[in-house]
Design a protein around this nucleic acid. Structure first.
Length: 741
RNA sequence: GAGCCUAUAGCUCAACGGUAGAGCGCUCGCUUCACACGCGAGAGGUCGAUGGUUCGAAUCCAUCUGGGCUCACCA
């Protein structure tokens, strides 16, 4: 017996060595698995952002995937768990910019080239650290297939996807109102704007009417009045019906603006009259289009007032300008009142800067056709959602989705494969008429050449929304658009495990991308795991100091105990209120297993494998007859064998239904109470009876080894370690042994 | 404004139509030959509130009240 059963069980002594053995075996790579494996089973890891360390959510997410993968591997599948990392455009860029700020520098001080060098350096250092942390979780990932969303091959996939959409006419450039972050200096999508409830004011401003009297408008942003183009009321509002078509004087700017009627105006809000600022509010932008209003840009991309705002306000930040405007209105007697008002302010998800709705030239992906097709497929039960309510949420979001702003003015990310003739085409002598044929903007994977002149095309500086590339993850990781063997073997994938917060950002977009590019749903099951909150149900955050670091937990209890604790708490609820006690329970359970195994093995003079004729997978194991079934001789024998049979069935069923906590609870109860408390105790008597001794040994070994198999996906290290003692001569690891039937 | 989740022992959670269970913690006893990270015994719950369906409800329905989440252009 090579395994040292010194007591009590110490995970630090075994876990790292076990992981090395698995890595050395090559079995993480599905191509190297023993036996004939006609069927594949694939899980793509949700690639962690390179922004920092893994948190407890990553731990939960990947441990659950690993449970599924390990079970399937044991069931004889060609099991692939593909790991990776996401370049995380805006998030990663922000983190590195924050580092720069410590040296009082901005990315602009460094320049694009130097800054990108820094990003790659960050990626290298952090990316490796993340892999190491994931390995500490005991994940059975195929590291040889690890991917990064900015790998060369991946860049090709992104370009191909862009080109495909462009050719279909679904990608277009347009001047539209978008969310602008003045700190990040980029547009961001609606999903990246965080709406936070904050205390503000509602100002009631009197706009003098040309015909005499006033019309009062209510606004939370008085500074935008400098860019007002109209006052709008509801067409059937009796208070204002006779004013529609009249003119008002815009205070301060002293400009004449029309009073218009639009059905979008809510009569019940404020005074029922709304100031329209076409370029700085999404609804106003639409109304202005409908009514063909003039537009005035008063806020720029730096979040400061423009020349158009007037000489007193020019250059001021919006909030400074707000004070000035309110003051001026008060002096002029045009401020009717100021009410306290709680409203939701949009802030940049990354840097918390207030988002400015601005009109800007951006690239968009039309969602119409994609959404339509995807909804059809998903409605047709092609994807299983766990928990099932997710399906409705999926469909509802797609029902109302708007076109996706896919361009970002960041530096870190996939450049749009769009090339602009720069400088403009100046045809060689005698070919002046060619200027009409020259295409100013070209979408191409490589640099195009102009047929008419010597000038070159330059790639536009914009990069893609990071989720554009993430959306391709399930197949781009397998070298799509190349028709590789891997793509054929491992795609579509079987299950994806992800956090709730990226359901729309990622899950939905993977589905429509998969359907568009591969004609298949990228996964069969979308599992949305619980969010891990602190014990009071609050989100974990550095400022609250309630963050649980999985690596610290591993140092304290070991990986298996962490896996136990997290799985133990996964009971199908929306949130997990973190309890470290579950890890304590895990640690105790591991020790219990350790000691039960020692008992069973010490009571056997002959090697346990001889008792059960253990065979490795690929031989008899693949057929499920890896042991000879001992027949019960006593009522205790019968009871434990029946209970074991039931447990196997239920555990398998629970895992297949993604009921991870239930599966583990079942195993815990069986092992501790049925096996240890009852059978192990009665075996002590039976072992003393020569007529029962051998049979009792057989049953002890059978139950122990079946438990090791069943528990392996959950607690891979300790089970593998005990397995070493069970199989004295056979070579194979427990991770490729067969799953009990 | 719309939708969703949740309320059970001190804490974290099971049970989902038929006399309330686990883990952790707590009390008492036990170093009994696998395990004191253990064994044995025990305390601890009007199953958020109200009303309804039912022979029977923590479990189904309605309303309410706490927690929490998501979506939406409310100025």
């Amino acid at each position: 017996m090579k395994v040292d059963f010194s007591k009590p069980y110490d995970p630090n002594k075994v876990e790292k060595n076990i992981y090395k053995k698995w890595e050395k075996s090559g079995y993480f790579n599905p191509d190297k698995l023993p036996g004939k494996r006609p069927k594949s089973f694939t899980v793509m890891m949700a690639p962690p952002n390179i922004t920092g360390h893994i948190h407890v959510g990553h731990a939960l997410e990947n441990i659950l995937s690993d449970i599924v993968i390990r079970k399937r591997r044991m069931q004889g599948y060609k099991a692939l768990f593909l790991p990776g990392k996401d370049h995380a455009g805006i998030a990663a860029q922000y983190v590195v910019e924050r580092e720069l700020r410590k040296e009082n520098k901005t990315r602009f001080d460094l320049g694009k080239e130097k800054f990108l060098e820094k990003m790659w350096q960050w990626m290298k250092e952090n990316g490796d650290a993340i892999d190491q942390e994931l390995k500490l979780l005991g994940l059975s990932c195929d590291w040889t297939r690890g991917r990064f969303t900015m790998d060369d091959e991946y860049q090709e996939a992104v370009k191909a996807a862009f080109e495909h959409y462009y050719k279909k006419g679904w990608i277009y450039q347009g001047k539209r109102i978008i969310n602008w972050c003045s700190r990040c200096q980029t547009s961001i999508s609606d999903l990246e704007v965080e709406h936070v409830e904050e205390k503000g004011s509602l100002w009631f401003i009197k706009y003098p009417l040309e015909a005499g009297g006033f019309i009062t408008v209510a606004t939370t942003r008085p500074e935008t009045m400098l860019g007002d183009a109209a006052v709008a009321v509801h067409p059937s509002d009796p208070r204002y019906k006779n004013l529609v078509g009249e003119k008002a004087r815009l205070p301060i700017k002293d400009r004449t603006i029309p009073i218009i009627a639009d059905k979008e105006i809510d009569q019940k809000f404020g005074t029922g009259a709304v100031k329209i600022t076409p370029l700085h509010d999404p609804l106003d932008f639409e109304i202005a289009l409908r009514h063909k209003l003039l537009s005035y840009e008063v806020i720029n991309q730096q979040g400061r007032m423009t020349k158009e705002a007037g000489s007193i306000c020019m250059g001021l930040k919006t909030l400074e300008c707000r004070k000035k405007v309110v003051e001026a209105l008060r002096e002029a007697g045009l401020l009717e009142k100021e009410e306290e008002y709680i409203h939701r302010i949009g802030r940049c998800e990354r840097c918390q800067t207030i988002i400015e709705p601005l009109v800007s030239l951006q690239w968009f992906l039309s969602m119409r056709e994609l959404a339509k097709k995807t909804r059809q497929v998903v409605r047709g039960e092609k994807i299983t959602f766990i928990p099932p309510q997710r399906k409705k949420i999926f469909l509802e979001w797609l029902r109302q989705v708007k076109d996706w702003n896919i361009s970002r003015q960041l530096w870190w990310g996939h450049r749009l494969p769009v090339w602009k003739h720069d400088p403009v085409c100046i045809p060689k002598r005698g070919r002046e008429k060619d200027i009409e044929k020259c295409i100013d903007m070209v979408v191409s994977k490589t640099e195009p050449a102009c047929k008419h002149c010597d000038a070159r095309y330059k790639q536009i500086p914009d990069v893609l929304d990071t989720w554009f590339s993430s959306a391709l993850w399930p197949f781009a990781t397998l070298e799509w658009p190349q028709k590789t063997k891997d793509l054929k073997t491992f795609y579509p994938t079987d299950m994806i495990s992800s956090a709730r917060e990226i359901f729309f950002l990622w899950i939905v977009r993977m589905v429509f991308s998969g359907l568009e590019f591969t004609k298949k749903s990228p996964f069969k099951t979308s599992y949305t795991h619980a969010t891990v909150l602190d014990q009071k149900g609050r989100k974990m955050s550095k400022s609250l100091g309630n963050v649980v670091d999985p690596i610290v937990m591993i140092e304290k209890y070991g990986t298996d105990a962490l896996r136990f604790g997290l799985t133990w708490q996964t009971m199908g609820t929306q949130d997990i209120h973190w309890s470290e006690e579950a890890l304590v329970a895990g640690k105790k359970f591991l020790n219990k297993m350790w000691n039960a195994a020692r008992f069973v093995l010490e009571r056997n003079e002959s090697p346990p494998e001889a008792l059960l004729a253990l065979r490795s997978l690929g031989e008899a194991g693949a057929r499920g007859d890896y042991f000879k079934k001992p027949h019960p001789k006593t009522k205790e024998d019968r009871k434990i064998l029946e209970s074991l049979k039931k447990t196997k069935k239920e555990v398998t069923r629970h895992i297949d239904h993604y009921q991870f906590g239930h599966a583990l609870h079942k195993l815990y109860d069986f092992f501790w109470h049925d096996f240890c408390d009852q059978y192990l105790e009665s075996s002590k008597k039976q072992l003393g009876d020569p007529a029962l001794k051998t049979r009792t040994q057989e049953i002890l070994v059978l139950v122990l080894t079946d438990c090791l198999r069943l528990l392996h996906p959950f607690l891979p290290h300790i089970t593998e370690n005990i397995w070493e003692a069970v199989r004295a001569s056979s070579k194979d690891l427990l991770m490729v042994e067969s799953w009990p039937k």
